[in-house]
Design a protein around this nucleic acid. Sequence first.
DNA 1: CCGTATCCATTCCGATACTG
DNA 2: CAGTATCGGAATGGATACGG
Lengths: 150, 150
Amino acid sequence: MAKRSSLKQDACPVARAMELIGDCWTMLIIRNAMLGQRRFSEFQKDLGLAKNILSDRLRVLVADGIFTTEPAADGSAYQDYVLTDKGRAVFPIMVALRQWGEAFAFSPGEATNILVDRKTGKRVPRMALHAADGRPLGVGDTRIKAIVAG
Amino acid sequence: MAKRSSLKQDACPVARAMELIGDCWTMLIIRNAMLGQRRFSEFQKDLGLAKNILSDRLRVLVADGIFTTEPAADGSAYQDYVLTDKGRAVFPIMVALRQWGEAFAFSPGEATNILVDRKTGKRVPRMALHAADGRPLGVGDTRIKAIVAG
DNA sequence: CCGTATCCATTCCGATACTG
DNA sequence: CAGTATCGGAATGGATACGG
């Protein structure tokens, strides 16, 4: 998209977020990082993408402050790619994507996987938006308000 | 991504969701639909994308059961594009993207917009994942469990 | 093992023109 | 207004080879 670049200046937070993490590989890299992966080769083998592409994505992700590099935990001469706070904050997006996928993207009988509570082993309830007073909010219960970022 | 197609068979719900709605234009079309738009020209003017691309995206979205077409509400000879249940279920993803964007994608002083409760006009609290018992769940509090879709 | 550099095929997208 | 058809340029991505 020629507009791809112009979205960086778009006033809409959805557009900006998509610009930063809307890429398919990018999201899967973050997913794997949330599952504990931190090495170049781990990402590369698991995702099966070309190394130059992975290299590219990681560079951008570091530049955008979503990952940071650390000296390798195993003492090797290389680096670990670790999520920053900004990167870890992608968690609700990841969960929302996952839960939508769980609900709508599989036919009965297909192999898949679900998100479970580590403590209880039980499936995690669907995430939803709530008002400050706890009232659940649907599409029509919200609106957009223009502001200046602070 | 050559793998783009292969992700459709991926067992991971995140990958499948990205395959269906990970495209930048796709997400923005859904965003606009959630704001009340339903006509081809509304999308086209507001997003500023080429008509053939919009046409393409809408066709895929309808094929995927995210949008459906209806006779135009204004009586014109054309169609309205309206979200299905599956499409409206994208709302939590949209909100999560938006709230992440609100928090991390703007510098102080930039014009932007935020999601507010229609009833109170106040900013909506950050969406988060909770266990069945209400306990908040972070990245490390969950894990993935293989199952067969039912 | 960790990347970078190059090459080539493909895909994607915007502009334009056209139809009903 | 609501699309479809076509075209050419740009960006993307995978494969491969290479270097630290």
